[in-house]
Write a protein that binds this DNA or RNA. Sequence first.
DNA 1: ATAGGATTGTGACCTATATCAATGGAAAGC
DNA 2: GCTTTCCATTGATATAGGTCACAATCCTAT
Lengths: 230, 230
Amino acid sequence: MAAKRKKNFNLELCSCRESFSDKDSELQILITAINFSVMFDVLERNINEYIKVSSEELEYAKSLFIPKKLRKKRIILQEGEFCTYTIFVEKGLLRSYSIDKKGNEHILQFTPEGWWTADLYSFFSKEPSNYNIEALEDSKLLLLTNETWELLLKEVPAFERYFRILIQNNLIATQRRLIGTISTTAEERYLKLLKNFPDIVQRVPQHMIASYLGITRETLSRIRSQIVSG
Amino acid sequence: MAAKRKKNFNLELCSCRESFSDKDSELQILITAINFSVMFDVLERNINEYIKVSSEELEYAKSLFIPKKLRKKRIILQEGEFCTYTIFVEKGLLRSYSIDKKGNEHILQFTPEGWWTADLYSFFSKEPSNYNIEALEDSKLLLLTNETWELLLKEVPAFERYFRILIQNNLIATQRRLIGTISTTAEERYLKLLKNFPDIVQRVPQHMIASYLGITRETLSRIRSQIVSG
DNA sequence: ATAGGATTGTGACCTATATCAATGGAAAGC
DNA sequence: GCTTTCCATTGATATAGGTCACAATCCTAT
């Protein structure tokens, strides 16, 4: 299973093309074509969900992204660095988190396939970031730099709308989470997360779920055993 | 002082024009002209801070807003209603809050002059709102309905950028507040609020500051006396 | 001026969650 | 296959903040 996933990575990412020998070139071209059609699959569907763009505009947009794979546990943005990309997750799962004075991690969000992440503040203000972004699974990412992001908005203004809607939805969700954190118990928050994002809870170690909920791993463990016992 | 403020309201809001008799009409025209230049003062500066628009575009934009005054303690959006406007505060102060199962209020945000508010979810999804929006001071508002908002974006696309930036800044702030709520003590949060928004803390009753911080009024009272005593 | 409501302050006590510490199991690297 | 690191669980104890109750002010409208 793990081996199969790895193979897919190799096939789908064009950065592996160098490994083909000359006599494989015909095969290589075919595979590359497949790569390109699959690489932006999730992104393309996501864009079409929110805005209408012509196929030329879409092709242009795609040309601006930098594909990148990120292995599990690798960090793509580290506290103190400048966040110079916005990141779209084609496949895999990321987390962004900050570390407080006592050294505790606090997870701001999980970013599975089909979602965007970045430290927006750092990206737009060009100040160093306070967040870390790390892969929780082997992941395939599509990056837009500061420059290509500006370029995209300038050349295809519909993307201004696209990002506005995404940011807006994120704001709505974050506001709800804030109110929830203030007004409900740890157990209620856990049950709600379980209901809304069962797959995330499955894919992520429990202590990270605890960190996302704003409680300790011990407390989450007790909550879970209490739920089971009735 | 309070009387003076009231007088300004009457002068600046065109809805009071009916109270003038016929022979006051010359004066009325003069005052109306003044009203219009002053009415959008704060909004205009706010817009120019983020985007470049021609004076025609600006005039068009202004023509879409509905001015409204809201007296202290009056509610402009009530839980269960549909949020059909986005609200810009020209003068005064609003709060938006939700009420949990136990009947406790939780303040999502304070909105002083120069800021926008709305229940974004309700506004865009056209579902009933879970929030209430209330004036904490006599306020002057500028409203954009669903229709005029759409129209504005369509006719002056630069506003897409304007709202994207505003929403983005709100998201950044809300994310920080969330992490702060999870990772810092009530006292730290209070001191931070006091440092960042001293005027809001001055203008708002303490139990609402407590509600914003996610603590009870008793706890805030104790924190304050502890700060004074060292 | 005054009555009634809203706001703040304080005391006594309670509870959800944190902290510290120890254990066993699972997974990942060699 | 073995070892090391990570991860979840459980117990004992500590604490920040909540709850309830009452008193003291301060507005605000008549």
